[in-house]
Design a protein around this nucleic acid. Structure first.
Lengths: 187, 187
DNA sequence: TTGATGGTAGACAGATCTGTCTGCTAACGT
DNA sequence: ACGTTAGCAGACAGATCTGTCTACCATCAA
């Protein structure tokens, strides 16, 4: 057995390639070659490409949700501050070399509504929004769900625009607007 | 010659299929079959698929920019009102049957940075932002470029989230936030 | 020792995709 | 009358993509 199990190597390779080039643009043959795995091994772990895509999205969800929570926590204990602080994760993401937008929005762009991949995207966005709504509630917002909708709207806009513009002020704008909204909603 | 020229039929068919299913997911054979055109005719007008994709993006740009301007104008003569009014185009778009997000963001998700398709997306977003900045300037904003960045951020967030959530309040939230921002920036 | 487990290597089938090429037809302008 | 232009129909080549299958190898536990 290799130092790192075949399944992990496949998923790691797929993670990098899917994000960098898009899901449909990357064939399983390439993933197999890059991860140095046999074809039979690949299909043993992922009976169909779609299952690998789903595993990829799960991995992204774990990572991104973690970064969001870390950034929020780093802003202090006050829920209102955390709502603003999570936008630091956006700024970090956009600064990253090879940043190419939100993996979920990208995946949704490549899939038809109703498919498992598309549904996974919707579920991810909803889970983030639920977490934000919880924070908004703790912050004493008059309409936590509404504030959460608006803040995630801002977050997704930053995620999308960050890929289309090299301007780092985009993330700053999103953060500043978030601060304004949080202040207005918890006044 | 048919009632509607072959080139128009091809472009019209591509427009519907590319938007509904994604660019890579639609093969030229399908477009040829659906538009009832001969293969040679297709390649005469569009020597490569990428050129059709570019023509598709140009068509989307014309339509969407027009809707944005129409919505802005419908809000009255005051530039500040127009900045808020353009978000009505977002609400209309999200309500439309078969809405699947921003064609440009989707196209960018399927293309690698640096390619012609990706550059066209960046150019579109920039042209919209420039138009918004002009309006912001007329509205007497202290920082027109900054306000334009934030408003387009909001617009793109609404475009992206509208495809991932059936909630019509998303567009309303974007509009309300825009009103808040415009008021704050032109105070 | 033997059998289960997890892996490698790579041929193969069948579908699909882009792009080329040949031939035929009909309308239009000069 | 005739050449040009626009179009239709469809075979074909060559690449690529997903997924299956056979054969072989190494490790480890019972």
């Amino acid at each position: 057995m290799a130092v790192v199990p075949a399944r992990d190597r496949i998923l790691q390779t797929a993670f990098a390639l899917f994000y960098a080039r898009g899901i449909r643009a990357v064939g399983v043959d390439l993933i197999i070659a890059e991860s140095g795995v046999a074809k039979a091994t690949f299909y043993k772990h992922f009976p169909a490409k779609d299952e690998l895509v789903l595993a990829y999205l799960d991995k992204v969800d774990t990572i991104w949700s973690g970064q969001l929570r870390d950034a929020a926590r780093a802003a202090g204990d006050a829920p209102g501050e955390q709502l603003v602080g999570m936008f630091d994760a956006l700024a970090s993401a956009c600064r990253r070399e090879g940043y190419r937008g939100c993996a979920f929005i990208n995946a949704a762009a490549e899939s038809v509504p109703g498919t498992a991949v598309h549904q996974r995207t919707v579920a991810h966005k909803e889970s983030v929004r639920t977490w934000v709504a919880d924070l908004a509630d703790q912050a004493g917002a008059a309409d936590p769900a509404g504030l959460a909708r608006t803040l995630t709207l801002l977050l997704d806009g930053g995620l999308a625009d960050g890929a289309l513009s090299a301007d780092p002020r985009v993330a700053e704008d999103a953060r500043a607007t978030a601060r304004l909204l949080v202040a207005a909603a918890t006044a």
